[in-house]
Design a protein around this nucleic acid. Structure first.
Lengths: 345, 345
DNA sequence: CAGGGTATTGGGAGCGCTCCCAAATGGGGT
DNA sequence: ACCCCATTTGGGAGCGCTCCCAATACCCTG
């Protein structure tokens, strides 16, 4: 009873569908692909045959004949563990998945770890095994984007690499998010607001710092470089930076931290230094990760619409694949952030 | 300068490689696919040609001719947000990625949200667009595994659905993890140990409860159903269950919670009830998620080797695809857990 | 030295689809 | 009634590869 489904020739082919509908293979193909050059009667006949036979096009044959793959790759640099942490990875994937849901596009997940895998990826892409590429967490010095450009392979990156990003990109408004966070601290009466930054080679980290600076001067506060401590997006780095800050400006009354994870490190140091949060020092993070919600006290944080970013990336890529008109700007999307106020500020 | 790479015929084909090596197409194919029936001299000639031409096989052609795809799908039910949360999703993906790294296999990510997408997936699989499927977070009543079975599509699931799981599966030792956690609590002098369970239709949640029971009786403690509160893996559920427990047995001195997220909810309730952790009530969670590390106090938790689970799933699936010998048992792997002791116990 | 393997090799026959050209069909216009 | 053009249709020619059969070359036996 179980294996009775096997037909003479396996799955039905276009040829069989065409025969069943009493039309030629070409016509059947046209219907399947939604060409307008088919009469209504014919279309209906073919559609009926498709339904009766349960026909599903063979992807491999399509790819071979049509010289495309109907697949895009999401390339994730594995060393970038930050990206793998909540909330990034799953949110991006969900967004991309959502955008692709009513498309024929497949999503290929490609983790790039060591150099060997990097080369394999390059080979991969060179061999045109995908129609386009989604690149997340690319470093400014990554050769991959240029390679893709040369190959003419459509590509969208998340997070511009610098102010004049040539590639289509999707980013959250790091500047404005940081600015709003600091403004919020100032509005709560804090006047000695410090910041712990991410790795400043990362453009987004730089923009957050810019936003901090903008808010400080907009508030008419005196900028003080001793209130700025660079770190590296890690919990330990955040802790170290916090120690520096306390040493340099023991009188600080607020800290804007460029990531929740670093904020967790900072909070630990503040606790050891017996500073109460938020009474003595107000704290604001960035990312609105699960860490923020479960910190003690819950951390005010800047939320990025990450799932939406994934969705937009995918849409942008689909547009690129469909054909960017030469005259068009390379589209670059910047999405707004949202300040989630909790008890730490 | 940019688009000068385009060769006469695009990428080199097998035919061209064969010509360059001075052999026939069949022979070249044999070399590429590592057939032993080729002389050393010929093999070297072909390999040289491959290198010189930078030949990479065309996947679509291969798939069409060979009736396989060299791709597997990781199917993720999107409603199962629990799975998307840290640490599951990214860890599984990393593990799977690692296992596939030195394989020609591609990883297809398939999110299944609503029913429409479910049907599309079924169609997908029916059309044999992948060589095998990794199924995570399947419910006991999910029809998908049976469908795959019928289709003869190799498949591995994470988390057995019940004691007599017919499909190849990879799981962590939920029973032993829970047992060890409770034993740990008892060894710390706790004698009124409660538990908050996950949804008991989930086999893993049931096993954790079994482990709890085993440890209680092994310790010679009196089992008490009032110490057992069912919940649903959510933070709110954990909080509600904790309230119940406190109402029923105000004298409890420890709680084993079947997930960190529920533990977070429970902790909140304990704080409101002015119970100190761990002095008044010791707490142990499950998953060792990022929440556990950042809870206050840091939460003792049972760690599952999730990345390793992903790796094993992929390996199992590759074996299945390579051909399960009919006589073989369906392999089912159970990996050990590890108790990570922190300040909450 | 003949006979019967065995180890290699070449290349035909598709796999199922898209692309595209040529053929067939159906109206209008004059 | 005739011709021209737009619309619709059929099906040949591949896409690049694997499978497999037949051909060739080579090596032992007796």
């Amino acid at each position: 009873m179980a294996a009775a489904r096997v037909r003479s020739g396996g799955r039905p082919t276009l040829e069989e569908v065409a025969a069943r509908a009493g039309v030629g293979r070409g016509t059947a193909s046209r219907v399947i692909n939604g060409s307008p050059r088919v009469s209504d009667a014919t279309r209906q006949a073919v559609e009926a045959a498709v339904a009766e036979l349960g026909y599903v096009p063979n992807r491999a044959a399509r790819a071979l004949a049509g010289n495309r793959t109907d697949a895009i790759a999401l390339v994730v640099p594995e060393p970038e563990t930050r990206f793998f942490a909540e909330p990034y990875f799953s949110a991006i994937v969900r967004g991309v998945g959502a955008a692709l849901a009513d498309t024929e596009m497949q999503l290929l997940l490609t983790l790039v770890g060591n150099d060997r895998e990097r080369r394999r990826l390059a080979q991969y892409l060179t061999a045109h095994r995908v129609d386009g590429v989604l690149l997340v967490a690319v470093h400014a010095d990554d050769p991959l984007p240029e390679l893709l450009e040369q190959l003419g392979m459509p590509c969208v990156i998340s997070g511009a690499r610098h102010a004049a990003e040539p590639l289509p990109s999707v980013d959250s408004d790091n500047f404005e998010g940081a600015r709003a966070a600091v403004e919020h601290l100032v509005s709560r009466g804090r006047h000695r607001v410090a910041t712990i930054t991410g790795r400043l080679e990362v453009y987004g980290a730089q923009r957050r710092l810019d936003g901090y600076r903008a808010a400080i001067s907009a508030a008419g506060l005196a900028p003080d470089e001793r209130l700025i401590a660079p770190a590296d997006f890690t919990e330990e780095g955040g802790a170290a930076a916090m120690r520096d800050l306390l040493a340099r400006r023991p009188d600080l009354d607020a800290v804007f931290v460029a990531s929740d994870v670093m904020a967790a490190g900072a909070r630990q140091v503040l606790r050891e230094a017996d500073r109460r949060i938020p009474e003595d020092v107000a704290l604001v993070g960035f990312d609105d990760s699960v860490v923020a919600r479960h910190m003690h006290p819950p951390l005010t944080s800047v939320r990025q619409p990450i799932e939406e970013m994934g969705r937009r990336m995918a849409q942008l890529l689909l547009d690129e694949i469909a054909g960017r008109t030469p005259g068009d700007e390379r589209p670059s999307v910047v999405l707004p952030t949202e300040l989630v106020v909790r008890d730490s500020s």
